[in-house]
Design a protein around this nucleic acid. Structure first.
Lengths: 197, 197
DNA sequence: CCTTCAGGTTAACGACCGCTAACCTCGCTG
DNA sequence: CAGCGAGGTTAGCGGTCGTTAACCTGAAGG
């Protein structure tokens, strides 16, 4: 809602570069001067846009978790009626799109959560939990033989599988985006199917 | 070879606690005073055992990569003759054991690699690459329909799946170690099977 | 034209961190 | 028992980092 297709706002530039740097070198491994330099301003100029370094990370993580949950809810509403298999496919597709298009964010999302202030961390965890529970519900509909703990473990494991995309790009010889997405999708479905006896 | 079943040596204590702390808060997020305090000595006392903080991380990462590769080679030699399916099962089992028993190390292994000196990083990457290629070979024997790039991507993704164990333990309601290992094993096999058409 | 204000700048402060220096204290061992 | 080395200790140095303070500038608006 706040983002139109205009030129990206300064805040958005900063967030994007901060995400990349945090993902590459870790939150504590990046200085504010580097973040500033990445957007062409220097160091303390960032404080005209954010209250501090922590605030950047918080906005990134809350944003990621919210986007994932919102997208999942939308897909659940849209694809319903096609049966749980279709809904699960849509969830998988959405998560893969996110993992392929925003690799730094996916990396941050399960790596730097503990660097947040208590209130922010609580919010992010709540969003993440809702996202997981949404998946668990759909997975159990598509695979009724799975108990709830097994389904939840399976969901976390498939997230690990789908979030492995940052490790795929190191050498340049990977297949195209479409082929990668298809491969990941098939593997996720196979993993869920095999999770039951 | 250097470790007998005696009481752990001071160096080993330090490495273990450092691994836990690095995994929890990131390499740059942990101070040497904290590592010292975790083993009952304080701060600079660590320098009687290690050249510096970097050296601890280096020894951890090289050790992990070496252990994984050595174990995989041994399992390849032992389980051969039982066919590629049996070898693959053994590799999966070994990786799961490692992921379940040494969660902090598994976390560090793909998170703090970039904090190493060039020479150490090169060595770790070489060990990791050998480990991956060993898997790729076995996977392609067990699933001949997979091309090499697809097989390599599939291996990385299954690593992501198996390495998701740190995310499973947050709530205490997960099933026992054996059940978790079985679930992960089935999912890994299912993912590989589904990677081909 | 004067004011205002968003969005920059540089200087500098205080805290922290990795590491070294200097010193102490045991338990061996010749 | 003298000596010594392994393994600690505390004090402190030098550098870095996040943040603030003080100042500057150019564009918008009455």
């Amino acid at each position: 809602m706040t983002t139109r297709s205009d030129a990206p706002t300064r805040r958005e530039q900063i967030l994007k570069e901060a995400a990349r740097l945090f993902a590459e070198r870790g939150f504590h491994g990046v200085g504010v001067d580097e973040i500033g330099a990445a957007v062409g301003i220097s160091g303390p100029g960032l404080y005209r846009h954010f209250a501090g370094k922590d605030a950047m990370l918080a906005e990134l993580l809350v944003g990621i978790s919210g986007q994932l949950l919102t997208g999942a809810k939308r897909r659940l509403a849209e694809a319903d009626g096609g049966g749980p298999e279709a809904v699960l496919d849509s969830l998988i597709e959405g998560h893969i799109d996110f993992a392929l298009d925003d690799r730094p964010l996916i990396t941050l999302h399960d790596r730097e959560l503990d660097r947040l202030r208590d209130s922010d961390r609580k919010m992010v965890r709540q969003l993440q939990r809702q996202y997981v529970e949404l998946w668990v519900g759909v997975v159990r509909e598509a695979h009724p033989e799975l108990g709830e703990p097994a389904a939840r473990s399976a969901v976390h494991s498939v997230f690990g599988l789908l979030n492995s995309t940052p490790h795929l790009g190191r050498g340049g010889s990977l297949p195209g985006r479409g082929a990668t997405a298809e491969l990941l999708h098939r593997m996720a479905r196979g993993a869920f199917a095999a999770a039951g006896g």
